[in-house]
Design a protein around this nucleic acid. Structure first.
Length: 467
RNA sequence: GCCCCCAUCGUCCAGCGGCCUAGGACGCCUGCCUUUCACGCAGGUAACACGGGUUCAAAUCCCGUUGGGGGUGCCA
């Protein structure tokens, strides 16, 4: 099958996988699934420092979490070095590459001496230097002509060869650089479409020049994706931006929601339905429809989409996902106070209110905590600005002391006092008991919390009132 | 400096020469529902960067300007 599509995701293992890389992986995967092609995973660990198992896991694990399954690989470039070395030897033998022993400093000094703008200028090109311990191999870039990158997102992108330097293809320690590994592997693995970030567009003519010099035939089609940027519209960076996929996972984002959101960055369905199953996205996806402009990674919208996915979860699934955030020692209350039954009963009300699972404790903390602290704004709005608060507290306490302790009777007691006094009684009670003027319905939660604890909370609010 | 890319509401996307008095989503605002908040529902706010062409007709094609971004390593 000659027109079988083959794409690859080829990250360098430089730490955790971030959302930008995940988006590249996703678009490759979508294209493979859309066309019935093959998705190859390749780890670009050409650099000695990058060959570490934990770095590899940092890539594989998030991909698995997202459900981006690969059909081939992972191939490791560190295990294929002999192929790149052979390619470099061939280029040298053919006179298409040569040895150079100039250091960066020497190059700069030479430029200054010759009054040239900084750059390499092919200084050692025709010196016929031998290989040596401190020598690099440089590729002989043609002096004239144009290298054309065929990009299915950007069209034909032309680079004048005269603007390209004789770039290094083998380091002085003998290791090949990624440009060589790229050409060799893409050829060897039969890659038909290279889908990756736009930050690599400028390296593409170099790879194509190598490709041609190595006699590999037609080059793959490229698709350089628009960059994902931060609020300042700068390329997302691990150092600056909070973009670790693992962190999103820890906060309780769902992989399906993350995938759905990522698919909407640089691409969009033309029927304007944004939140939809991945199968529908696969069906509609095409490289030709990808945007050119960079996209802001907006966690507000991610939160909204994640919230929608949470609301689509079954009660059981939600409970299972929220459970780790409320049952452990990290929860904001004494661990011994926690009751799985109580949380399970309240969970459906929590489910409509959270954007991510890690927010779950914020809605039930007051039920399990010994004491509650009053949110300043809530106190002001719900107590200070409310009418007849002392009377409401008096009346509610009196009823609470004697009434049956069920959700219904609790509700009747609170509303009853409000009616008798002609005032709204729920919010003051809510603030007194939960510390806030918003949250899940009180009644079931109060029943679970118990009569004494509830009355105690209102009493301490009364005390606050007097001070 | 040089090379390359880009430009529709604050943000993400739809638009591929007439269906556009520019559509959807997030955010924000208003109302309904509700004796909280949220969900849900109904509304509102807000954009084709600018200037020239081409054409009967341009957000859509071409050129320029401006603005933004990326790359310029013995990192990938």
């Amino acid at each position: 099958m000659t027109d079988q599509i083959r794409v690859r995701f080829a990250p360098a293992p430089t730490g955790y996988l971030h959302v930008g890389s995940a988006r590249s992986a996703l678009f490759n995967w979508l294209y493979a699934r859309h066309t019935g092609g093959t998705f190859v995973l390749r780890i670009e660990d050409t650099n000695e420092e990058l060959k570490q198992d934990e770095f590899i896991d940092a890539i594989l694990e998030p991909l698995q979490w997202l459900g981006l399954d690969w059909d081939e690989g992972p191939h490791f470039q560190s295990e294929r070095t002999h192929l790149y070395v052979a390619a470099i030897e061939q280029l040298v033998a053919d006179g298409k590459a040569y040895f150079c022993n100039m250091s960066r400093e020497q190059i700069d000094a030479r430029c200054e001496a010759d009054g040239l703008p900084s750059g390499y200028h092919g200084f050692s090109r025709d010196l016929g230097l031998p290989d040596s311990d401190d020598a690099v191999v440089r590729f002989r870039v043609p002096d004239s002509g144009t290298t054309v990158v065929d990009d299915s997102i950007r069209g034909r992108v032309e680079f004048e060869n005269a603007n390209l330097e004789d770039f290094v293809i083998r380091r002085s320690d003998g290791s090949p650089v990624f440009l060589v590994a790229n050409a060799v592997d893409d050829a060897d693995m039969g890659i038909t479409h290279v889908v990756r970030g736009e930050d690599l567009l400028n390296t593409t003519p170099k790879v194509q020049l190598l490709w041609e010099a190595l006699g590999y035939g037609p080059t793959p089609t490229y698709a350089h994706l628009p960059l994902l940027v931060n609020e300042a519209r700068k390329k997302l960076s691990k150092r600056r931006d909070d973009v670790s996929l693992g962190e999103f996972r820890e906060k309780g984002y769902l992989p399906q929601a993350m995938l759905n959101y990522l698919a909407l960055l640089g691409w969009g369905p033309n029927d304007e339905v944004e939140i939809r199953p991945i199968e529908e996205i696969i069906a509609q996806f095409d490289l030709a429809d990808i945007n050119k402009g960079s996209a802001f990674f907006d966690t507000k919208k991610l939160d909204h989409i994640n919230g929608e996915y949470i609301r689509m979860q079954s009660a059981e699934a939600f409970l299972a996902d929220a459970e780790p955030y409320v049952s452990g020692a990290d929860a904001p209350w004494p661990e011994a106070n926690y009751s799985a039954e109580v949380f399970a009963a309240l969970a459906p009300e929590v489910q409509t209110r959270v954007a991510v699972h890690s927010e779950a404790p914020n809605f039930v903390d007051w039920v399990f905590a010994d004491e509650v602290s009053y949110d300043e704004k809530s106190w002001k709005k719900g107590i200070q600005k409310a009418k007849m608060v002392p009377e409401i507290f008096e009346g509610v306490i009196a009823k609470f002391e004697t009434c049956d302790w069920t959700a219904d009777t609790i509700k009747d007691a609170v509303f009853g006092v409000g009616e008798e006094l002609g005032a709204k009684s729920q919010v003051p009670v809510r603030v007194a008991v939960t510390g806030r003027n918003f949250g899940i319905p009180l009644w079931d939660a109060l029943e679970a919390m118990g009569r004494e604890k509830t009355i105690g909370r209102i009493r301490s609010a009364q005390a606050q009132l007097d001070t």
